[in-house]
Write a protein that binds this DNA or RNA. Structure first.
Length: 119
DNA sequence: ACTCTGACTCCTT
DNA sequence: GAAGGAGCCAGAG
């Protein structure tokens, strides 16, 4: 019962804590974020976590894009434009709603991965 | 309980 | 690229 709820809340927090480490000017995919949070195969959970992210944490939700490099928010939504604007403000080029992962995807090295083990 | 729906992803055509 | 299908799984009706 409450055990499951705690498990879900824990998953969300792990994702938020991981998102917090994505560096300025870099991006990660939903699936990658889930993987780094220790939740392989949970890309959709990562997406939900972003939607539910507490505003007071000021998390860089806009640094998360689809695995193909495209912004995943519906193109006609205000959120789409905000994400594109925020990314550009950090120097990330966005063309036709997509980012070149080869240039901007965050690829944490071993040291960074080990550094995260404090949760 | 069951169906639908995603800010998803991978694999196969 | 695009399109279809299969995993994924918590919320909402």
């Amino acid at each position: 019962m409450t055990k499951d709820k705690n498990a879900n809340a824990d998953s969300l927090m792990r994702i938020w804590n991981t998102l917090e480490r994505v560096p300025y000017g870099r991006v990660v995919s939903y699936g990658q974020l889930a993987d780094l949070a220790g939740l392989p195969g949970r890309a959709r959970l990562a997406a939900r976590a972003l939607r539910l992210a507490p505003a007071e944490r000021q998390l860089p939700w806009y640094r998360v894009i689809g695995a193909s490099g495209k912004i995943s928010i519906p193109k006609d939504s205000p959120g789409y434009r905000e994400q594109m604007m925020r990314l550009r403000n950090e120097g990330v080029e966005v063309n036709n709603g997509r980012v070149a992962l080869s240039l901007y995807q965050w690829q944490p090295d071993l040291a960074e991965l080990l550094w995260q083990l404090d949760y």
